[in-house]
Design a protein around this nucleic acid. Structure first.
Lengths: 232, 232
DNA sequence: GCAAAAGTGTTTTCTATACACCCATGT
DNA sequence: ACATGGGTGTATAGAAAACACTTTTGC
């Protein structure tokens, strides 16, 4: 096999930005970096690509290692490659973001990483350019969520409309009119009303809904104009 | 300086997908690959990242080498990293797409690359996964152009509305109603009407317009819903 | 009975769409 | 005079936005 001559290879890492939502707060999962140097600083979960692994595969592996989860919504965000972004050694990082159901996440698996959930507005200083990456991920999520029903990936199988609305309000950091919200969400036909209620957050209780997965898939591309133009 | 141990570095390339528009046809610029092996096959213009170069910088350099152009619309598309995507040697490719004014492009500069413009529908077979990349770029351009005024980057300083409309029709591969198109485009306030006409494509002539650059910048984010829902 | 959250309709404005004819000019 | 492409207006339907009160129920 021929080789390209005189080219300097570099390390390629994949970093994962993992979002979760507990029904009230949008959160980010970060770890305490285990390897020297810069040990014990907060960091995104990442790793280097394996010899027989593609980028998506590496992202899935890294996500599985930290969360124990398969079949998660995962999307490539951007590649970062400043020569000095990682002071240890030149590393190009390909960044993914994941939206997970925080309830499926089990703490045991990740004890070795000292992982912790932070509210989005309280994310600590992270190593290297990781805070920039998180900001870019939020921008992309806002963009995507305005056009496609991706935020359902953050919810459990059964959820209430107030939970869903709060999620949208957190993502866009602005209040949404509740009547218009319900009208749009029901008009989308994506929700199936359940007969029982969640009584944990009010006396009256809020009906559970679940997602119509077929319609969700079918309408993924056409779920447009979801966010009110006047929001924020 | 410490190093990460036991990690295998790989080559990182940047490939550029270069689009142009001649007033009638949307086109792609590709080169005849100069280096063995797989010499003389059509390929995107690319190169490996330099030691002191970031990814955007590498993309700009590569674009400059081939087109002689600075200050071009350039956007990172995606990173590709299958272990066997380049059979010569493991290479992760970070792909950018560029939208250039084809009239600013001067043929001399790139004679050494045997560059050639192809109509988008007649792009030949390219090496590796380059055809997949081109398709992804077109998808992204359609997405972006529906929300943001990026297609102006393909036009010369002065252009006519029929040219602009044809461009949109090519990008979306579907006819657009001319009265509705003019209404929307003038409503956007982005165009400044000139007093003279382009007579090259009709006896009557079509007025030239130029872009209001300040408004273009200001409205970049809010230029929404440009493409008719019924197109195609 | 009251506090706290869930749920429900109507009106108005705006935007998108469909649609067909006259205009200007060079030959 | 005619062929060719450029340019113009209106009516209709659908979507978005603004807006406030009633319901339920545990305490």
């Amino acid at each position: 096999m021929g080789k390209y001559l005189n080219q300097k290879p570099v390390l390629v890492a994949v970093d994962c930005i993992i979002f979760g939502y507990d029904g009230d707060q949008l959160k980010l999962l970060v770890i305490k970096r285990a390897i020297e140097p810069i040990k014990d600083k907060w960091s995104l979960m990442g790793g280097f690509i394996g010899e027989n692994e593609d980028l998506d595969g590496a992202a899935k592996r890294i996500l599985l290692e930290l969360t124990g989860l398969h079949d998660v919504y995962l999307e490539q965000l951007h590649a970062y490659g400043s020569p000095d972004r990682d002071p240890i050694e030149r590393t190009v990082s390909v960044v993914y973001f994941a939206l997970i159901d925080i309830h499926k996440y089990s703490k045991q698996i990740n004890d070795q990483y000292h992982a912790e959930w932070f509210k989005l507005k309280e994310v600590p200083e992270l190593i290297f350019d990781h805070n920039v990456m998180v900001k870019a991920a939020m921008d992309k999520i806002r963009y995507q969520a305005a056009l496609h029903p991706i935020l359902f990936e953050l919810l459990p199988k059964r959820f209430t409309i107030p939970q869903l609305q709060t999620l949208y309000e957190q993502v866009y950091d602005s209040p949404i009119d509740n009547r218009n919200f319900i009208r749009k969400i029901t008009a989308s036909g994506l929700l199936i009303k359940q007969s029982d209620k969640d009584k944990s957050s009010s006396r009256r209780g809020a009906f559970y809904f679940k997602l119509d997965k077929n319609k969700h898939k079918a309408q993924f591309q056409s779920f447009l104009n979801f966010i009110p133009k006047t929001s924020k």
